[in-house]
Simulated assay, not measured.
Amino acid sequence: MMRRCLCLGMLLLSLAAQGADLAGSKDHPAIKRFAGSEIVTYDYKRFDAFDLQTSTFQQYNLETKQREYASPPLHLEGARTTIWYESPGDTSATELLRNYQNELQARGFKILYDSTKDPAATRWNNYLTPFGAVEYKTSRSRYVMYAADSRGVRVSTARLDKPEGSIYVALTAVEWNKDDSTFKAKRGAYIAVEIIEPKAMTQNMVLVKADEMSKAMATHGKVALYGIYFDTNKAEIKPESRPALEEIAKLLKGEPGLRLHIVGHTDNVGGLESNMGLSRRRAEAVQAALVGSFGIAASRLTANGVGYLAPVASNGAEEGRAKNRRVELVPQ
C-alpha cells in the first residue's frame, strides 16, 4: 500500500512538473534543460532564417537598426526551434550559460562564440537580444523582458557536425534588474535556446488548375507556376512536374485559339548570362514536353527566358529565391 502511495505521489509530482511548461511546448532532443527550469515561451518553424553570431560584437547601428560584428553572422535556413526557459530565482545568467555550454560540449558541439570571453560584449548594455516584446506564444507577460538587466546578458553559439547535417544552437541568458519589479516574472533568470537545423526548403506551392490559369491570365495577363521542377542548374523536367504539365495541356486543349509565351525565371545565384541561358532552356523543355507528351502544336508555344530580371521576391534569402524560380505563362 505504501509503495502504491509512493508511486502515485511520484506520478503526481511528475505531472505537476510537466504542467508548469507552456502548453504544447517540449524540449529539443539535441539538448537537455537546466534543472528546475520550465518552458515559458515556445515556437517551431519548419523552415525559417536565422543569423548566427560567430565573432566579436562591434556596435548597434542606429540608422540601419542592425547589429554589426567583426565578421558577418552565419546565415542559416532550415528548421528552427525557439525555447525560453525560466529558472529559479537564485540562478545567474552565467550559471545558465556555463551549464548549457558544458552540456553542448559533452554532446560533441563546438563553441563558436562566447560573450563572456569577448571584451567588446560590454557594449551589449544598450539593448537586449533577443528579448523585448514577446512575439511568440508565452505563459508570461509579453512585456516581461523589459525589466531584464541588459548588463547581465550572456550569449553563446555552437555547432555540431553530423553525417546527416550540422545542428546549430544559439544561447542568450539574462538576469532580472533587482531594482525593477514592474514586469518581473515569478523567477529570476531566463535563457533563450534557438536550435537551427539547416536544410533545403521543400517546394510546397498549390497546383494551379487549368481554369485558374485562364482566370489569372485574363485578370493579370500572366500566371506563375511553381509545380514544374528542375534540379539545380539543370533544364531536365523532373517526373513530379507531370500534374502541372497536364493542367497546362488541359488549358490549351480547352481553348484552341490560345497561344502562349512560356517564360522561364531563375534566382540570382550565378551570373546573368548563365541564368539567361538556363531560364530559356527550361522554358524550351516545357514547350517540348507539351508538344511531345500532350500533342500540343508547337506553333502555339514560344519559349523565352529572362533569368533573374523579373523577381517577385528578394533574392537575399532562400524563401525569396524559391519564389523567383518559376515558369510563367503569358498569352501571345
Rank of each mutant, 00 (worst) to 15 (best):
R3D: 10
C7V: 12
G19M: 12
D27L: 13
D27A: 09
I31E: 04
K32V: 01
K32L: 02
G36M: 05
S37T: 07
I39L: 03
T41P: 05
Y44V: 13
Y44H: 11
S55D: 06
Y60R: 08
Y60I: 09
Y60H: 10
N61I: 04
L62C: 07
L62N: 04
S71P: 05
S71A: 14
P73N: 13
H75V: 11
L76H: 12
A79H: 10
T82A: 01
T82I: 02
I83D: 04
S87D: 04
P88W: 15
R98E: 03
G108Q: 05
F109C: 10
D114F: 03
A120P: 14
A121Q: 15
W124T: 05
N125A: 13
T129P: 06
A133E: 15
V134D: 07
S141D: 07
V144I: 13
A148D: 13
E164V: 04
E164M: 11
I167A: 08
L171R: 06
T172K: 09
W176S: 11
N177Y: 11
S181H: 12
R187E: 13
A192I: 05
E194N: 14
I195C: 02
I195A: 05
I196V: 12
A200E: 11
M205D: 12
V206M: 04
K215L: 13
K222I: 02
A224L: 10
A224K: 10
L225Q: 00
L225D: 00
D231S: 13
K234Q: 14
I237E: 09
K238H: 11
A244L: 05
A244H: 00
A244Q: 14
E247V: 09
I248K: 06
L251I: 04
G264F: 01
H265F: 06
L272W: 10
S274V: 14
S274D: 13
L278F: 05
L278A: 07
R280T: 09
E284I: 06
V286M: 01
Q287L: 15
Q287M: 12
Q287C: 13
L290I: 01
L290A: 02
G295N: 01
I296V: 02
I296R: 03
L301G: 04
L301H: 03
A310S: 14
P311A: 02
G320P: 02
N324Y: 10
V327Q: 04
P331W: 01
Q332K: 15
